[in-house]
Design a protein around this nucleic acid. Structure first.
Lengths: 339, 339
DNA sequence: CTGAAAGCGCTTACAG
DNA sequence: CTGAAAGCGCTTACAG
């Protein structure tokens, strides 16, 4: 912010109108005569005037700033979502304050955002503690949890139908004739991982099956690699794995091919969740459940802005349908299910 | 921003001190007695007071907001940079305003940022027109161009040594015995693509070679696919390709293997630039030039903040060394170069 | 439609 | 160290 930048008073002086007239000219919907407006605009252009939206925010109580909290950007799903969300927010006249959270410093960061008087908050790939959620609610700042939810929280949430996605994957693997089906979890405390797993077990149960083995990958590459080794340590090995997201599936496929000399899908089938762009790359051709990123972003923005604009915080939950995308990393269902 | 949120006056009343005392308590470095400070803190906690940093910004002329402009987030290099940069900025007490630019609406977006009184601007994967750069300079807002530069502009810039990287790649391919070496450009008007190409030609020339064929990939996946087809349309085909960035190299490798049944690197060698994480995936094992993302971010932040904090805009250019990362997508140099 | 004035929450000389 | 007061740029009743 430049010192000595031009203010509405400077413009008023040059245009020979009151400072209020200048303000009105730049307030959508305020009443100014065409002549006054023209004079003001001309003066503003001459001086290079730009309204200070921070001053406006102090008065109006609306900053038109939306904080988007994200914990990491290495899982490709999140940058894509961030891009879509930012564009949409911008189109609707809001700006995004990007906040990279840390497991530790969450509290301080949320305080900071509230100090910036953000009109709303979306939490993506980051979990909000219940005390913070409470605090946001008490300031009247709407929060929507993106791709996660916390039952105990008063915050809105948008997710895909993780349970149904997991269930479909179970049916797909069972009808593919797999008999030793494993699961690699993400972070144990994340709702996505828990729901995908619950849906998967439900689907297996519907087919009269149970899980063969389970490992935890923490949604990280290193965790995924460790999980793969854990799963294949014994002589009796899985013949299919559902990995809780694509991001972990890629390194797992690398490990299985390189370290265990396994062919995918001939020796072992891999399925996952998200359908990030890399899932379509020939080197992986991952069969996965697509999360409808665009629809999820739409829902998030509309739920959030409705509350921002009505100044009425409320809890809403959107669960969007997902879709199985069949590629080549898993054996295809056979006409008769092996029994 | 909640209406009726608690203000410094409320705190002052409860603590039985002046509003100024409250303000001083929350201004680092202001003089307040320990007793006063304690009373204020206690009252602030009791009321849940949070200083309105927007009001502070209006007065102090510093918003502690840094705008980061980005055109796309699908090339993995950028999300990674964005994460590093945001964390660093946050650690230094700044917040990032994320702005997704469009070829079209750049002007309006820059105006918007300036209205938000951002203290500084970093332009990554987006090009700043010279009139806009001029305008930023005139408001005293420092700008640093990340991974690009525009000679005509008064803005600072941070890049890797694209010329040297291109040059090394040429030597690497020539000593690998390749004879028909092609290049796939990014956007023709980007400094990265131009410099990588210039360095590449320079390296070829040093070996007494010239480019065999050239295509333009526009830094997009679709463009890269088209470029691959263009390069392989004729009977006489390239035996090596330098692709201007990794992001285009992956789809090109897919096309060559799938549509032309070519083996990499036996039939054709592929090298690229960036060293995004996917370059290390076994399915691609891309030989590429690493851009030192972390060092580039460090340089960007320090150049920018130095200017922000000294309120003195100046032009600085940092060119960081890059490094060839040899993997398996290109034939290795032979002891004797074929002549 | 228009201007003078009060006010948003805060910082910052200024006097004590 | 402290408070009263002026002021940052702006919006918004209020009277005309």
């Amino acid at each position: 912010m430049a010192r000595g930048s031009v203010t509405s008073t400077d413009v008023a002086r040059l245009a020979n109108v009151s400072q209020s007239a200048v303000s009105r000219t730049f307030s959508p919907g305020a009443s100014v005569s065409p002549e006054t407006r023209a004079r003001v605009i001309a003066a503003a252009e001459a001086l290079g005037y730009r309204p200070n939206v921070l001053a406006r925010a102090v008065i109006s109580g609306r900053s038109r700033l939306i904080a988007v909290l994200v914990a990491y950007l290495d899982n490709r799903f999140y940058p894509l979502v961030l891009e879509l969300m930012s564009r949409q927010l911008q189109d609707r006249g809001y700006q995004v304050l990007l906040v990279m959270t840390d497991a530790g410093a969450q509290d301080a960061l949320v305080q900071k955002m509230l100090q910036y008087q953000v009109d709303g908050i979306v939490m993506a790939s980051a979990t909000l503690s219940s005390s913070l959620a409470q605090e946001c609610a008490s300031t009247g700042t709407p929060v929507v949890l993106f791709n996660r939810y916390v039952p105990a929280l008063p915050s809105s949430s948008v997710t895909s139908d993780n349970i149904e996605g997991g269930r479909q994957l179970a049916h797909f693997l069972v009808s593919g004739g797999h008999r030793r089906i494993a699961f690699v979890a993400g972070q144990e405390d994340s709702s996505t991982s828990r729901d995908r797993e619950a849906g998967f077990y439900k689907g297996l149960a519907e087919c009269g099956r149970t899980i063969f083995r389970r490992a935890v990958g923490l949604y990280t590459v290193a965790g995924a690699v460790a999980a793969a080794h854990h799963l294949f340590a014994d002589a009796e090995r899985p013949d299919a794995i559902f990995v809780a997201n694509d991001h972990m599936a890629f390194p797992i496929m690398d490990v299985l091919r390189r370290d265990y000399r396994l062919r995918i899908p001939e020796d072992v089938s891999i399925v996952a969740y998200d359908d990030v762009p890399e899932a379509g790359w020939d080197g992986y051709a991952l069969t996965t459940v697509e999360q409808p990123a665009s629809a999820m972003v739409d829902a998030t923005v509309s739920i959030l802005l409705e509350q921002v604009e009505s100044r009425a915080v409320q809890r809403r939950a959107a669960v969007l349908p997902c879709r199985l995308v069949v590629r080549r990393s898993a054996r295809l269902p056979r006409s008769t299910v092996a029994g």
